[in-house]
Design a binder for these strands. Sequence first.
DNA 1: TATATTGGTGTATAATTATGCTATGAGAGA
DNA 2: TCTCTCATAGCATAATTATACACCAATATA
Lengths: 162, 162
Amino acid sequence: MKIGKQERQKLIINFISESKISSQQQLATLLHSRGIPVTQSTLSRDLEEIGVAKVRDQNGDPIYTVSSTVVSISPPEEALRKVLREWVAKVEYAGNIVVLHTPPGCAHVVAAALDRAQLEDILGTVAGDDTIFIVSKNEKAAGTVAGRLNDASGLIVKYKSE
Amino acid sequence: MKIGKQERQKLIINFISESKISSQQQLATLLHSRGIPVTQSTLSRDLEEIGVAKVRDQNGDPIYTVSSTVVSISPPEEALRKVLREWVAKVEYAGNIVVLHTPPGCAHVVAAALDRAQLEDILGTVAGDDTIFIVSKNEKAAGTVAGRLNDASGLIVKYKSE
DNA sequence: TATATTGGTGTATAATTATGCTATGAGAGA
DNA sequence: TCTCTCATAGCATAATTATACACCAATATA
């Protein structure tokens, strides 16, 4: 049976959503077994056109998935990460207060991003010129927040105030 | 500055979520420019450990994304696709009724999956032994439903009753 | 101390995926 | 019919990613 590009791509989508496909070669074999001869080159192009992505399962092994099943993280959180990465120079905390240091004049930008992200454990923020106070409900929560912000900012230095 | 694996992977996550990284080589260059020498081999291992996936943007170009930002399609829809792919032999429609043909005794399984998926344009289903009637509100809707089911079933034959 | 053991990494290379080029076949128009 | 154009896909190969192996440093063990 001779089939066209459309039909082949439909079948590819079905195979990918049904079973764990982890390489184009594997997909080619599968299609061959259904009487549809196709080369890896063509599959590479098909997968690009369909928008297939290669993600990883729990074991870290790669499997294909159709891109319509992939969604992105919420914009505010992503924006926050970006801002933190760019502007945060230091993270410390003492008691229930986390203190962020930024370049001069940047504090309000960071604080605005923090407010928009509405992170739990953050009761509120106050921004100066190059410093932000983040109020948490207790020391434990402050530690959690500080840790998360430190991670997100990509800082390597320790954040605990000794 | 000497940094460990943990710190490096944190930076990798930040770079990936910040900018459009499309190859390990590109990532390696980026890290080098920050004074962190690392080979492509190590990055390959890091990306697996972090669970990074390679998805595609609107243009079909590949970009890395952290797996925590990837979620799967809803189970019922996926299950329906699976069932349709496996059991549906033919899709036709006439008037506002779509008729599915399945192997003997399989109709109820397919009908149940259809009901669970709660597709719009489907008012209800009736399953016999190897036949299912799907009632839509009019012929146009029936055509839409038939087309969608045909696609999902992976059938190559045309579904329109001439 | 001497000897394993383990985690992390680089090197070289295998495996996988993408692509430049070419060929073929289906329509369009002369 | 002849030629042109366009879409599709194969082949060969480039580009990218994964991995077998070996080495080193740190830690444990006798």
